[in-house]
Design a protein around this nucleic acid. Structure first.
Length: 444
DNA sequence: CTCTGATCATGT
DNA sequence: ACATGATCAGAG
């Protein structure tokens, strides 16, 4: 079937809403396939069954005459009813040897994926794939976020130019990710400015971005112009007037109160909440926040720039460890998230409250980090399996060169590690080790 | 000092 | 009432 115009294509596509894959599978692809791991199969079903296209693997856009690429992707319903993309959307492969000669405007990925018809279905772990329900479709155009894409593209390109393709991480960028794409985990490829072999990667629209555009589509929200290319840029902009000032000075400037006596323990957090915004308010402040996964962090550092503390993350619960690492929440979390770290320097070993706003650092995790984190994850699985507190990878009890630790959390009188094994009373969280932080902060 | 379990202040 | 982000504080 050929379409003469976008309008015609969209008109035809209307009928797909409300259908399950089984209902449109006129080529009976679902009958023979062994589901579950058959990636891309649902896309093929839509392509051949609904649009009556012969299956192709060439590099042309699916609706070639319109330069529109077809993408079929899932979302899940959160407990509170909101929707969230199930996965990142993988675009074309990154050719490390080519990217260095490209701009985003001239790139292969933009050529193929600038406009996409995205078909959304509701993923439901209790259903078989053939029964997933298609509920939305949208014509998506990268043009709307071109500034951010350009910036992301340059970040990826620059890493390759620096001979650091092997250090790429999805957390490096805002919307356009460089996700791993290998047939096997040992698959490696060359890069132009280093002899180190690198994991093959593909461009992707990051999970948080997909969630952003889905929600935008459903709420038909008016697109607010976004002023910033990265969260880091936003944060630096907001903090600009305060660099070189102490925490107490900054807070006094903001709220007019004096803090000479008792310093609130969370003074850095009070400042970042006020100047940058509380996490829940951020999506309204700038579009960049509703389409990226990031965390604003505060960190005290010494005069030599090294961290004074480890960095903590939210609590972990038993159910987080049911999956294998590859499919786990935490792998995805560390893979995709960017930590925007506001550093306060302890000049003359000054105490909390009297440290000076020094800089803002971006931290993301690469393959090496994730492989190390896996060890911690697997160790926790083991501890759970054996129900043995002593096996938990704490910093004291863990293994050598551990980058991800677990640490207690809670209130006075808690017995944190004991509680971890009682699902409903989690009192344990992840912390990344100082060693890793030192490494991350000294980058550049 | 560093290490590491414990605890605080606040938000939801 | 409990999770979160972050610092505190005793041991060594």
């Amino acid at each position: 079937m050929k379409f003469k115009s976008e309008k015609e294509l969209l008109e035809y596509t209307k009928d797909i809403e409300g259908k399950t894959f089984k209902e449109i599978d006129s080529q009976h692809l679902l009958d023979t396939a062994n589901l579950r791991r058959a990636k891309g199969l649902l896309g093929h079903v839509v392509e051949s069954g609904f649009y009556k296209y012969p299956l192709n693997n060439d590099s042309h856009a699916d609706f070639e005459e319109l330069d529109i690429e077809l993408k079929v992707t899932g979302y899940v319903k959160n407990k509170n009813g909101s929707l969230r993309a199930k996965e990142r959307l993988v675009l074309s492969k990154i050719d490390y040897n080519q990217i260095v000669n490209e701009t985003f405007e001239s790139s292969h990925v933009l050529g193929k994926c600038k406009k996409m018809l995205i078909i959304w279905y509701e993923y439901d772990s209790n259903k078989e794939a053939k029964d997933f329900l298609i509920t939305h479709y949208q014509l998506y155009d990268m043009e709307n976020d071109l500034k951010v894409f350009n910036n992301d593209f340059e970040i990826i390109k620059n890493k390759v130019l620096d001979g650091k393709a092997h250090e790429l991480s999805e957390g490096d960028t805002s919307y356009l990710g460089a996700c791993t794409k290998a047939r096997t985990s040992s698959d490696r490829t060359t890069q132009p400015f280093s002899d180190i072999l690198s994991k093959p990667r593909a461009y992707s629209l990051k999970n948080a971005y997909m969630t952003g555009i889905l929600r935008e589509h459903i709420n038909s929200k008016v697109i607010t112009l976004n002023k910033y290319n990265t969260v880091e840029e936003y944060v630096k902009d907001k903090l600009r007037p305060y660099f070189g000032k102490t925490q107490v000075e900054i807070l006094e400037k903001i709220d007019g109160r004096k803090y000479s006596e008792k310093i609130p323990k969370n003074i850095s957090k009070m400042i970042s909440d006020e100047l940058i915004g509380k996490d829940t308010e951020l999506p309204e402040k700038d579009e960049i926040f509703s389409k990226t996964s990031f965390i604003i962090k505060n960190l005290p550092i010494k005069e030599n720039g090294k961290p004074i503390e480890r960095m903590s993350f939210k609590t972990i619960s038993l159910s987080d460890f049911e999956e294998e690492w590859e499919d786990s929440f935490w792998k995805n979390y560390f893979e995709e998230t960017t930590l925007i770290t506001i550093c306060y320097q302890a000049v003359n070993n000054s105490k909390n409250g009297f440290r000076v706003l020094k800089n803002v650092k971006k931290i993301s995790f690469d393959e090496y980090d994730l492989d190390e984190f896996k060890k911690t994850y697997d160790q926790i699985k083991l501890a759970i399996e054996k129900e043995d507190i002593n096996l938990l990878p704490t910093s004291a009890n863990g293994f050598k060169n551990q980058l991800l630790e677990i640490a207690p959390k809670g209130v006075k009188g808690d017995n944190a590690y004991e509680n971890f094994f009682k699902n409903d009373k989690t009192k344990v969280s992840f912390m990344i080790s100082k060693r890793l932080l030192i490494d991350k902060l000294s980058d550049e």
